[in-house]
Protein backbone atom coordinates (compact mmCIF):
# COMPACT_ATOMS: atom_id res chain seq x y z
CA UNK A 1 0.00 0.00 0.00
CA UNK A 2 1.21 3.42 -0.88
CA UNK A 3 1.96 5.74 2.00
CA UNK A 4 0.07 9.00 1.83
CA UNK A 5 0.39 12.04 4.02
CA UNK A 6 -2.93 13.59 4.96
CA UNK A 7 -2.87 17.18 6.00
CA UNK A 8 -4.91 20.35 5.97
CA UNK A 9 -4.76 22.55 2.90
CA UNK A 10 -3.53 25.38 5.12
CA UNK A 11 -0.49 23.33 6.16
CA UNK A 12 0.92 22.98 2.65
CA UNK A 13 4.10 24.76 1.75
CA UNK A 14 4.17 27.33 -1.01
CA UNK A 15 4.48 25.76 -4.43
CA UNK A 16 3.30 22.31 -3.38
CA UNK A 17 0.46 20.47 -5.03
CA UNK A 18 -2.08 18.31 -3.32
CA UNK A 19 -5.17 16.27 -3.92
CA UNK A 20 -8.38 16.91 -2.01
CA UNK A 21 -9.39 14.01 0.26
CA UNK A 22 -12.23 15.46 2.23
CA UNK A 23 -14.11 18.72 2.73
CA UNK A 24 -15.53 19.63 6.11
CA UNK A 25 -19.24 18.93 6.12
CA UNK A 26 -20.72 22.38 6.63
CA UNK A 27 -23.53 22.71 4.07
CA UNK A 28 -23.05 26.34 3.13
CA UNK A 29 -19.29 26.15 2.90
CA UNK A 30 -19.43 22.84 1.11
CA UNK A 31 -21.84 24.10 -1.53
CA UNK A 32 -19.89 27.27 -2.12
CA UNK A 33 -16.59 25.46 -2.50
CA UNK A 34 -18.09 22.70 -4.64
CA UNK A 35 -19.51 25.28 -7.02
CA UNK A 36 -16.02 26.55 -7.65
CA UNK A 37 -14.98 23.09 -8.70
CA UNK A 38 -13.27 22.04 -5.50
CA UNK A 39 -14.51 18.49 -4.95
CA UNK A 40 -12.85 15.39 -3.65
CA UNK A 41 -10.05 14.26 -5.90
CA UNK A 42 -9.25 17.61 -7.51
CA UNK A 43 -5.66 18.82 -7.56
CA UNK A 44 -4.92 22.07 -5.73
CA UNK A 45 -1.65 23.94 -6.07
CA UNK A 46 -0.62 26.41 -3.42
CA UNK A 47 0.59 29.39 -5.45
CA UNK A 48 1.30 32.17 -2.99
CA UNK A 49 0.49 33.59 0.37
CA UNK A 50 -0.80 37.14 0.87
CA UNK A 51 1.81 39.64 2.11
CA UNK A 52 0.19 39.70 5.52
CA UNK A 53 0.17 35.95 5.75
CA UNK A 54 -3.48 35.21 5.57
CA UNK A 55 -5.50 34.49 2.52
CA UNK A 56 -3.67 31.94 0.46
CA UNK A 57 -3.69 31.90 -3.30
CA UNK A 58 -4.43 28.51 -4.77
CA UNK A 59 -4.72 27.25 -8.28
CA UNK A 60 -7.48 24.81 -9.01
CA UNK A 61 -8.96 23.76 -12.34
CA UNK A 62 -6.98 26.38 -14.26
CA UNK A 63 -8.01 29.38 -12.26
CA UNK A 64 -6.71 31.14 -9.22
CA UNK A 65 -8.65 31.51 -6.02
CA UNK A 66 -8.01 33.36 -2.79
CA UNK A 67 -9.05 31.41 0.28
CA UNK A 68 -8.68 32.27 3.95
CA UNK A 69 -6.63 30.00 6.18
CA UNK A 70 -9.69 29.41 8.35
CA UNK A 71 -11.49 28.01 5.33
CA UNK A 72 -8.43 26.16 4.08
CA UNK A 73 -8.33 24.31 7.41
CA UNK A 74 -11.65 22.74 6.52
CA UNK A 75 -10.15 21.02 3.50
CA UNK A 76 -8.13 17.84 4.04
CA UNK A 77 -5.62 17.08 1.33
CA UNK A 78 -2.96 14.58 0.46
CA UNK A 79 0.40 15.86 -0.63
CA UNK A 80 1.41 14.84 -4.15
Amino acid sequence: MQYTLMMKLSDLNCGESSKVIQISNQPKFMRRINDLGIVEGVVITYVARAPLGDPMLIKVRDFMLAIRLDDAKKITVEKL
Binding site: F29, F63, M64, L65, I67, R68
Partner: peptide, 10 residues
Protein backbone atom coordinates in the same frame (compact mmCIF):
# COMPACT_ATOMS: atom_id res chain seq x y z
CA UNK B 1 -23.22 34.41 8.78
CA UNK B 2 -20.02 32.45 8.74
CA UNK B 3 -19.64 31.74 5.04
CA UNK B 4 -16.06 32.02 3.96
CA UNK B 5 -14.08 34.30 1.76
CA UNK B 6 -13.55 32.87 -1.67
CA UNK B 7 -12.39 35.24 -4.33
CA UNK B 8 -11.50 34.38 -7.86
CA UNK B 9 -8.28 36.08 -8.93
CA UNK B 10 -8.64 36.67 -12.67
Amino acid sequence: DASGFLLEIP
